[in-house]
Write a protein that binds this DNA or RNA. Structure first.
Length: 933
DNA sequence: GCAAGGTC
């Protein structure tokens, strides 16, 4: 084998280069139980290669705000337009990422097989970025396929391309914009309206670039209907009754909106009310079978005909897909590729008592699919894969519909014969038509459509007859119907709002948010909240609820893909555009209040400026000065009783200035520092009595940017990293880095952590430790119990199990950070040991359970989860010196755990002996814990 | 507590 090729799929598929699904040489578990690994050999680049294949499940990484920007109360919504965002892996996807990281080590080439659309390209780059971090010299290719069939896969592997960064960048732009705009406007309108209308206190009033236009469609149709003025119109009605059959003729002028003219035409007809048959025409007429089924069509028909809403229909289809009964349900394709074996799929259905006979007929004639015009280049139309007769309820109904639709679209159009009769009554023309159905064909298997025959008399050209009725009829125009779910999906598709996979979600979202409701369980009607929001922004002159904002972005994204516009420029322009809209919306927020008030029938509470929740946040999160590390705002914060000034990008940036306990109050003054410039605000301090030198007043207004050296020294803030001020020696930033906080033993006392707020507990550093916050060494080893560090390398928190059961009362340790920041460290206190693993955390003690010579013997191993743990292993009664059975390798004995770890990585190249049984270093097969012999 | 996009 020359090369190892690592392929990553967006959805799982096992093929060889020839495209045949094969029995893999090896199937092994990755870290994620849902994303397996397969190994097989295939010919690539003219040589036989060992392929390792796995899948990811959609996006691996997600943009999110960091630190204080996640918190609604800690930053202004407006700051979200420029707040730092990071792309990170959510916990659910960590295992998939780990599989990629571990597998790519042994590969030379990476081939991306994600869907060949924009999102797929972006997912591809998430995989690439993940793997290149581990193995920078991987050669990366992109397989481009038009569908997942044997010839297409074969063609793709023989014509590998390079991944397209531009396409991926366009998706990044969309992601960042959706996040910034969605979060900023959601927080803005939620915070404001909850305060102004207490009745909304529990409502989340979200804004999103897809959900809002979706709401807009509903409101627009509702208003069209409300504002509709009916207009009367008149028609001339002609019927001809004979042998109990009434034939109705249509007027060639259809309708007239002027009664007088219509009546005068009628009078003329009545002067000589004889109908002359001018033409009788007969021609074949077909009713076309449906095109192969794509997602939106499935949702629309399910909603219209089965009365199962789009969200539920898609959920059921996904379930049928995971059961292997139908093909992938999220597809925009309505064309069957030539290579798909339709006969065998039809064959599977021949055993069914209801549609089996029809399927046999199709087989006899040979399946002939009617082809549509859409292709997503990835997935075939939705079709049954296996036969099932054991489903029930809506699952059975959706499955039956998919089967019937499939059989219908590969059968034949219905055929009929249409007769059209044209008559003349004293100069006015009328027509009537009849329909005879000759062959029902697909209609026999497709009850979701019908075709009615229409009878007509036998007329002969040149003959005459006297109409039974010749009169005028009056009607009026009717308002358009409210939108059904199927109408809404059609509008979303037409205007490019959402994707096939998300239409149903956006509709569901506006229902959950109480922006819309359903009338007669069928027609969408906007709620007071929905009306108020849309009209509020409309009165400002913004088309927030119209689809064209999204359409403009789509056009720009296309330019990025084509290389005619740079992604950073598009992002900047779009962010600026929405930021201006946001600022205007904030200025005119009263208009939203007024519109909401109008529809909700509630008075808006008038808020003074200092009561406006947005202003309150602004005051609290006002910038003291720019951070000298990252440029974001430094803001005043408080931890328990201790005031400090920290970078708003925490934890991405940990720059902070902790103030001593003698600072009792701190506020930002209106005044900027004359020396440091307009962006640096002076601070108003109030000190505890007698805590400062006599010449400092108890109230003092000063700058902490570095220009006021006397004050900084008096305050007791140690000088740290140089600020960007004029005098580098006057810097004030003190960086507290928890990872530096370990004592020599690596253990901290719980009591020392709890007392961090008192100034004396901390050694603010000096000399080589300048700028680093350290715990005093004498805190280690106190009687109240040493505690180990968690994965964040800060002392863990000890808790007691309260849940009833065998562990009730047992102590355990977890990360001491807040819920949204804490790591997943978990350890029983009674399993704590002094031994540290390669991760430099306390190892746990375990017992060999496997029967054999080692059964009952105790050993130490990494305490992290299976997915995260290192290779550390040590028998309990052997000291660190005996880790390695290779005694000639003396220098290893003095290595630190970190060095061992480095060594462990080298060992992949064969420098270090590993156990032949479990392939872990540090012991031999003879004393391996897995050795049951 | 926020978006939209993948997907299991």
């Amino acid at each position: 084998m020359e090369k190892n090729i690592f392929i990553a799929f967006e959805v799982l598929l096992l093929t060889t280069a020839s495209g045949r699904v094969v029995k893999p040489i090896g199937e092994k578990e990755g870290f994620s139980i849902y994303n397996k690994l397969y190994e097989f050999d295939a010919m690539v680049f003219g040589q036989m290669c060992r392929m390792v294949m796995t899948s990811v499940s959609g996006h691996l990484l997600n943009y999110e705000f960091v630190g204080t920007y996640k918190n609604w109360q800690s930053c202004s919504p407006e700051s979200l337009f420029s707040a730092p965002v990071i792309k990170s892996c959510s916990p659910d996807f960590e295992r998939i990422k780990k599989t990629l990281e571990s597998q790519c080590r042994s590969c030379n080439v990476l081939i991306i097989w994600t869907d060949c659309d924009r999102e797929g390209e972006n997912i591809g780059f998430e995989i690439i970025d993940t793997c290149l971090k581990i193995k920078p010299n991987l050669d990366v290719y992109r397989a481009k396929f038009s569908e997942i069939t044997s010839p297409s896969v074969k063609r793709a592997i023989q014509n590998l391309e390079r991944p397209n960064k531009l396409i991926s960048e366009a998706v990044d732009v969309r992601q960042v914009l959706d996040l910034r705009i969605g979060a900023a406007f959601t927080r803005f309108q939620t915070l404001r309206l909850q305060k102004v209308f207490p009745v909304l206190a529990e409502n989340l009033l979200s804004y999103g670039s897809c959900q809002f236009p979706t709401l807009g469609f509903v409101v627009e149709r509702y208003l069209e209907r409300e504002n509709f003025i009916a207009e009367p119109f008149w028609k001339i009605k002609v019927t001809h009754e004979m042998n109990d059959l009434v034939v109705e003729f249509r007027w060639a002028r259809d309708r007239l909106y002027d009664e007088a003219i219509c009546r005068s035409i009628l009078s003329r007809c009545q002067e000589n009310p004889i109908a002359k048959v001018e033409k009788v025409e007969g021609k074949p007429k077909s009713k076309w079978r449906p095109t192969p089924l794509d997602t939106t069509e499935m949702e629309k028909i399910a909603s219209r005909k089965l009365k199962i809403n789009a969200k539920e229909a898609l959920r059921i289809a996904e379930k049928l897909y995971t059961q292997g009964l139908i093909s992938y349900p999220r597809t925009e394709t309505n064309i069957f590729p030539d290579s798909i074996n339709l006969s065998s799929l039809v064959e599977l259905q021949t055993k069914d008592p209801s549609w089996g006979g029809f399927a046999r007929n199709v087989l006899r004639e040979g399946p002939r699919p009617r082809q549509g015009k859409k292709s997503d280049q990835s997935h075939p139309p939705i079709h049954p894969i296996l036969y099932s007769n054991s489903l029930s309820g809506n699952e059975a109904r959706i499955y039956e519909f998919i089967v019937r639709h499939f059989l219908a679209c590969v059968s034949k159009d219905a055929k009929g014969h249409e007769t059209t009769v044209k008559i003349d009554i004293n100069g006015e023309k009328f027509t009537a038509s009849g329909l005879m159905i000759l062959e029902r064909n697909y209609l026999d298997v497709y009850p979701y459509e019908n075709w009615s025959a229409k009878c007509i008399h036998e007329y002969k050209q040149g003959t005459t007859f006297t109409p039974t009725l010749l009169d005028i009829s009056e009607s009026e125009t009717t308002a358009p119907n409210l939108l059904t779910e199927a109408d809404l999906i059609s509008l979303m598709e037409k205007h490019g709002i959402g994707t096939d996979a998300t239409h149903a979600e956006h509709i569901e979202k506006i229902k959950i948010r109480s922006y819309v409701g359903l009338e007669n369980n069928t027609y969408f009607i906007p709620s007071a909240i929905g009306m108020g929001l849309v009209e509020g922004y409309d009165t400002m002159g913004f088309a927030m609820s119209k689809p064209h904002l999204r359409a403009e972005l789509e056009a720009d994204l296309k330019r990025i893909c084509e290389g005619t516009k740079q992604s950073n420029i598009v992002l900047q322009e779009q962010v600026n555009k929405y930021k201006v809209l946001f600022q205007k919306a904030k200025e005119q927020v009263n208009k939203i209040d007024a519109a909401m008030s109008k529809y909700m029938g509630e008075n808006a509470i008038h808020l003074a400026d200092n009561e406006d929740p947005l202003n309150v946040i602004m005051t609290r999160t006002a910038s003291v000065m720019p951070c000298n590390t990252c440029g974001n705002d430094m803001v005043v914060r408080k931890h328990q009783e201790t005031l400090y000034i920290s970078c708003s990008a925490y934890p991405a940036c940990k720059n902070s200035i902790w103030l001593p306990s003698k600072v009792m109050q701190l506020s930002i003054s209106e005044e900027s520092c004359e020396t440091c410039g307009p962006n640096v605000k002076k601070l108003e301090f109030k000190f505890s009595p007698g805590s400062m030198a006599p010449y400092y007043p108890q109230h003092y207004i000063g700058c902490l940017n570095g220009c006021d050296q006397d004050f900084i020294e008096m305050l007791g803030v140690k000088l740290g990293q140089t600020n960007s001020g004029s005098n580098p020696s006057l810097a004030t930033q003190v960086s507290y880095n928890y990872t530096q906080a370990s004592t020599s033993s690596g253990y901290h006392s719980l009591s020392s952590l709890q007392s961090t707020d008192t100034d004396d507990t901390w050694d603010r550093g000096g000399g080589s430790n300048r700028g680093q916050k350290r715990l005093r060494d004498d805190n280690a080893g106190r009687n109240d119990g040493d505690v180990p560090c968690c994965f964040c390398n800060i002392p863990a928190k000890k808790l007691v199990t309260r849940k009833e059961g065998p562990n009730n009362g047992r102590e355990f340790l977890v990360c001491s950070k807040n819920d949204d920041e804490k790591c997943n460290y978990y350890m029983w206190a009674d399993e704590l040991t002094d031994v540290k693993c390669y991760c430099n955390i306390s190892a746990k003690k375990l017992v060999v359970r496997k029967p054999g010579p080692n059964q009952g013997k105790e050993f130490y191993a990494c305490s992290k989860s299976q997915a995260d743990k290192c290779n550390f292993f040590q028998w309990k009664n052997e000291n660190a010196e005996s880790h390695f059975s290779n005694t000639s390798n003396k220098q290893d004995h003095t290595r630190t755990p970190q060095q061992f770890r480095g060594r462990g990585q080298n060992s992949a190249r064969g420098n270090q002996r590993k156990c032949r049984l479990c392939h872990q270093p540090g012991h031999t097969r003879r004393n391996c814990p897995q050795n049951g012999e």
